[in-house]
Design a protein around this nucleic acid. Sequence first.
DNA 1: TGTATTTGTAACAATTTCGTCACATTGAGT
DNA 2: ACTCAATGTGACGAAATTGTTACAAATACA
Lengths: 246, 246
Amino acid sequence: MEMANLPTQNLYSMEANLAANILLVEDEPAIQDLISMNLRQAGHSPILSSDAGEALEKVRDTLPDLILVDWMLPGMSGIELIRRLRNNDRTRNVPIIMLTARADENDKLAGLDSGADDYITKPFSIRELNARIKAVLRRRAPQITEDKVVFKHLTLDPSTHRVNANGQDLNLGPTEFKLLHFFMTHPERVYSRTQILDQVWGDHVFIEERTVDVHIRRLRAALESTGAASLLQTVRGAGYRLTAIA
Amino acid sequence: MEMANLPTQNLYSMEANLAANILLVEDEPAIQDLISMNLRQAGHSPILSSDAGEALEKVRDTLPDLILVDWMLPGMSGIELIRRLRNNDRTRNVPIIMLTARADENDKLAGLDSGADDYITKPFSIRELNARIKAVLRRRAPQITEDKVVFKHLTLDPSTHRVNANGQDLNLGPTEFKLLHFFMTHPERVYSRTQILDQVWGDHVFIEERTVDVHIRRLRAALESTGAASLLQTVRGAGYRLTAIA
DNA sequence: TGTATTTGTAACAATTTCGTCACATTGAGT
DNA sequence: ACTCAATGTGACGAAATTGTTACAAATACA
């Protein structure tokens, strides 16, 4: 379990479901409680530690998706902790948000760049913290493909979110769009319903396999007018396939 | 408020036409003064810092629209500063122009290689600096430029803060104006609410995503009489888009 | 200061999309 | 032709997304 698995998201839409393992390094129990409770509420899984040493230990155990570090810590400071994390190949790329005191208090902070990905000054609202977390995770998440995909006379452009067939724009729902995007980027190959669910809906979704059939049907209906419906074939006993060979 | 649109477009004529926030990193006070004065004159809002550390601190609060970095700085060099900025996901996309005394071609290459968008050698004329700034902004952040934007029968002029449609001026609030400006400089592309918030409101503002919807609605209402309201489309599950196509 | 405008948010309504089911149809093997 | 499993199809309620409105706080202006 060495991978820093970023929150589950699929590559065919911008939505990122952020349910992350977040390591919180905070020595004040009250604040630790407050933050961890809210992290949980936001759907994350907080890992708690009250000093830098403990944090390093926890990190050794499992690599979190994000680390929240208080500036003021007993013993090793937050800065030093970050420096160590950045020095280690394994932890180098884990995004870090630093919790600092008011800007006017930390004069000695001037000129120091700890290498955190973002900062948030106390006191902060929970909503603001959530917003920062979301932003950092989103920036760190794998880039979605924005390349146009062309297949026969079909053109799908993620950046404009349009599907064009012979100059005619198709109107697709979000799921059908993702489904078509997936097939167009993986043509000529058969995918089982399970594979399609994993790739298009996302890992570990609990959905009836037959639901795929329904969406295939809807996609076919949308493609009907373009004549491309027949290219989305059923492979009995195996799954579905998009092929250029009618 | 759905009130009759009274002609009040002069309300904003006092505003500076082009308010780009430009972070200047320059240790020599004389040059710092000179440049900042001229930036102000050109309508920008300079943020001053005399070394790399201070610059990083300023960036921490709010992202500027552009950064001017002197090559020679006390302590951390300009190159190193740029490297750090480019290393952080949050600051990665801020355009940077490097200032240097050296005319050495190798240095120029090193500068561009480190991630600067442009490079200008001292001594330089104010005119040249302004030209470079404008060019970089036009390329990287067209919505902060003062250039007139034309889209279909809509004309938006940032310098006069006016939007004209078929010879008729529209009355837009500041936010709707910026929103429209953004869409007109980035047509056809779909932007999520989050992206719109980042681009139009700013990166560290934390505002409900749904607020975007409300402003979209207000903008649509303002565009209603021009027939352009239907060009500002909703893309379900993805965001909004300004399109010329139906 | 008082007034008007703008802005962000919440609450509610309207709309679209999703997942599932029941039932119809197909196809392969016997 | 028959059987049976796999797939197609239409419908429906639930869930998710977006539209709309009202309102209070913030802001600008006179």
